[in-house]
Simulated scan of single mutants.
Amino acid sequence: MKLTTKLLATAALATGLAGAAFADGHEPLQVGFIYVGPTGDLGWTYEHDQGRLAVEEHFGDQVETVFLESVPEGADAERAITTMILGGADMVFTTSFGYMEATNAVAGQFPDVLFEHATGYLREHPNVSTYSARFYEGRAIQGHIAGQMTESNIIGYIASFPIPEVIRGINSAYLHARAVNPDVEFRVVWAYTWFDPAAEGAAAQALIDAGADVILQHTDSTAPQAAAQEAGIYSFGQASDMAQFAPAPRISSIIDNWAPYYIERVGMALDGTWEQADTWDGIGPGMVEIGEMTEAIPEEVRASAQEMIDAIAAGEYHPFTGPINRQDGTAWLAEGEVADDGTLAGMDFYVEGITGDIPN
């Protein structure tokens, strides 16, 4: 891949390393990251940025990293990605579903730049790869715990946008909560944001007012943790540990570990072995982790949750194993049948037992 020397085109680009050259005189590979939220969200974007820092630490002066944070999805993303490339980026990671079309549009204009898009599915050009985590595996563990921790039998779920990734998580958490507590009820509030502490906090409070005594979230701020702590109910960390924001009665978290993937793919770019790929990893490979299960969880529940973690990691258990019906009661998976990745990737329906509609 041709490496070029260009000045960064905007002061908004934050540089991780100075422009140190290789010992043999070659310029460092400039790797860019486009973030949907601030690096200080201590959730989704924070963990992607931890991956960026891991790349810096691993490769030293072979790479230079840059990032743009809080980039809106849509047309603004296309402009931000283009600006980053004009500033010298040789490889760009776009880290939110809503960057999918922008990533592919810009990739067509810059065929010598490598693009990696998180959680999407479009690869319209040979220089675009996609990657995601099987978050639904972690949601299964959360549901298993939540179903046994609730006393009101009402579990609240703060959802971001009605895309397959989020719908999969709701379904997985519900199925595993219901498996241990047939009386459990899920109440879903759609926040229509990835990161908005005020909106997320309001959503959490609405669920608490409706009787929820356990809160799950697929949004990125710690605001739901704070609301849960103030109300004295249980919550789970999202994307990162978040332990310092709700030490009690927080019970666990789902953690996204991007560092190994970023190191692997940047290494391939450096040695010329990068190829287009579609990666979807989970608990087994370590892309999805379960944070500490605190002592607020009864010992037997911790033990059964760990058994499920181990079974998923070993490939002995799949969270979407039949019998499972769709919300309208029609059969989806027969006894022992496992969902295929194609259906999961495009999931646009609730499973039986969840009330309410998925927004358009």
Rank of each mutant, 00 (worst) to 15 (best):
T5P: 03
L7T: 00
A9D: 01
A11G: 04
L13W: 09
A18G: 03
A23F: 06
H26W: 05
P28M: 08
G32H: 07
Y35W: 08
G37R: 06
P38Y: 15
T39P: 00
T45Q: 13
H58Y: 13
G60I: 02
D61Q: 12
V66E: 04
F67E: 04
A75T: 05
A77M: 05
T83F: 12
L86S: 10
T95C: 15
S96K: 09
F97H: 01
Y99F: 11
M100T: 02
M100L: 13
E101M: 09
F110M: 06
Y131H: 09
Y131T: 05
Y131G: 01
S132L: 15
R139D: 01
G147P: 00
Q148S: 11
I154Y: 14
S160Q: 04
I170F: 05
L175D: 01
H176G: 04
H176C: 04
V184H: 07
V184Q: 02
V184Y: 05
R187C: 07
A202P: 00
A206F: 14
G211V: 06
G211P: 01
T219N: 12
D220S: 06
D220A: 08
S221A: 11
S221R: 08
A227E: 10
Q229A: 12
S235P: 00
F245I: 05
A248Y: 14
S253G: 03
I254K: 09
P260D: 03
Y261A: 14
E264N: 05
M268F: 14
E289G: 07
I290K: 10
E292V: 05
M293G: 00
T294L: 10
A296D: 07
P298G: 10
E300Q: 08
V301H: 13
A303H: 07
A314R: 11
E316M: 11
P319D: 14
G336E: 02
V338S: 05
A339H: 04
L344N: 08
A345S: 09
Y350V: 02
I358F: 09
